[in-house]
Simulated scan of single mutants.
Amino acid sequence: MKFSLEPHVEVKAVLDDIMRQQSFDIDFDNLDTFRANWNQLVLAGIQQPTPYDEQVRATDRLIPADHPGGHIRLRIYSPATITEPVPALYWIHGGGLIIGIPEQDEGFLKSVVATLGCVVVAVDYRLAPEHPYPAALEDCYDGLLWVAAHAKELGIDAARLAIGGNSAGAGLAAATTLLARDKNGPALIHQSLAYPMLDYRSITHSSYEITDLGIWDRDINQRAWNAYLGSLSAAGAGLPYYAAPAVASDLSGLPPAFMAVGSLDLFRDEDIQYAQQLMAAGVSTELYFQAGVPHCFDLAAETNVVKKYLQARIQALGAAFMYN
Rank of each mutant, 00 (worst) to 15 (best):
I18Q: 07
A36K: 13
G169S: 11
L74M: 06
R20V: 01
Y241N: 11
N30D: 14
Q104M: 15
D250L: 01
M197G: 10
D182I: 02
N30Y: 01
F258E: 06
L127Q: 06
A257H: 05
G230Q: 08
A148T: 04
T59F: 08
V261Y: 04
Q277I: 00
A168S: 15
Y195K: 01
L310K: 13
E138V: 15
V9Q: 09
Q55E: 10
R20D: 09
P134C: 10
A80G: 00
I76G: 02
S4L: 02
L188K: 03
V42Q: 03
E270S: 09
Y309N: 01
L251M: 12
L239S: 07
A36Q: 13
E209L: 14
P134G: 11
D212T: 05
P294Y: 07
R57T: 13
V113Q: 03
D16M: 01
P51Q: 06
V306W: 12
G155N: 01
V293P: 10
A128H: 10
D157L: 02
Q21C: 02
Y228H: 15
A114I: 07
R268S: 01
A312I: 00
A148M: 03
P7Q: 00
K152P: 00
S233Y: 04
Y90E: 11
L41N: 15
R268F: 05
A170S: 13
I101L: 14
E6C: 00
D60S: 11
G253S: 04
D25R: 11
V247M: 09
Y200H: 15
Q311W: 10
D271P: 02
S23T: 15
G292N: 04
Q21M: 09
L213H: 09
L62V: 01
H67W: 11
Y274I: 03
Y323T: 14
G95Q: 08
L172V: 11
Q273T: 10
C118E: 04
P68C: 07
P129I: 13
F321R: 01
S202I: 12
Q273M: 06
A320G: 06
D105G: 06
N39G: 00
V86E: 04
H131N: 15
S23E: 04
I189Y: 05
F108D: 13
R218S: 11
L161Y: 05
